[in-house]
């Protein structure tokens, strides 16, 4: 009886093993690159149309340039309705000022006091602003508005020309203000 059981067990295990080997052979092909044969190569135009992110290295910044002086007029027309005439009044996000407030009871997080990278400003203004017409500003216009915001925050001079070369080199006041996630961080009772 014990031998019979052992034989049945052996046959069963062997079957499972063989089935496993056969099964593993199937999907293995599909786990290779393009193993499923789905989708197609993207064209250069398709990539270019959507590849709008700008990295802290400056990668992704387009040709073009602008200064705070040019940005002032543009800000008044395209941005002030939501951010206030001087970028401080709102009703939407305050953009100017707030230096030295981050450790206070009422921190004011703005481009000047909080944002760690100037390149992010280009990325975001281009991708998402002005709110009613995102991606409508030309590269020159985005550089100009970014220059105005940095100038108003005391980070660059009024005549600084921003372009793909100069923008990544700008040092933001809160560049070292961020740290990785240390959680769990609350001591157990």
């Amino acid at each position: 009886m014990r031998n019979l059981l052992r034989n049945i067990l052996t046959v069963a295990l062997t079957t499972i093993l063989i089935a496993g080997i056969l099964w593993a052979g199937g999907p293995a092909d599909q786990e290779q690159t393009h193993g499923y044969g789905l989708g197609r190569p993207a064209t250069d135009q398709e990539v270019k149309a959507w590849n709008i992110d700008v990295a802290p290295t400056g990668e992704g910044l387009p040709a073009g340039q602008g200064t705070a002086k040019q940005g002032a007029a543009l800000f008044a027309v395209r941005c002030a309705t939501c951010h206030g005439p001087t970028g401080k009044e709102g009703p939407m996000d305050r953009l100017i000022g707030g230096a030295g407030t981050l450790a206070s009871q009422h921190p004011i997080k703005t481009v000047g006091s909080y944002w760690p990278y100037a390149t992010t400003l280009y990325d975001y203004v281009h991708r998402a602003m002005p709110f009613p017409a995102p991606q409508s500003l030309s590269p020159d216009e985005v550089y100009s508005v970014v220059a105005w915001l940095l100038y108003q925050n005391g980070i660059i001079a009024e005549d600084t020309v921003l372009d793909a070369h100069s923008l990544p080199g700008i040092s933001m006041p809160n560049r070292r203000g961020f740290s990785p996630d240390p959680r769990p961080d609350v001591p157990k009772p």
């Binding site: 990295a55 981050l102 450790a103 909080y114 990278y117 992010t120 990325d123 998402a128 203000g177 740290s179």
Partner: peptide
């Protein structure tokens, strides 16, 4: 380093640094 992981969705601590 998009806006959503720098100026937003970061957690300001009492010492003025952010996670």
């Amino acid at each position: 380093m998009t806006r959503e992981e720098t100026s937003q969705y970061t957690d300001l601590m009492p010492d003025g640094t952010a996670r």
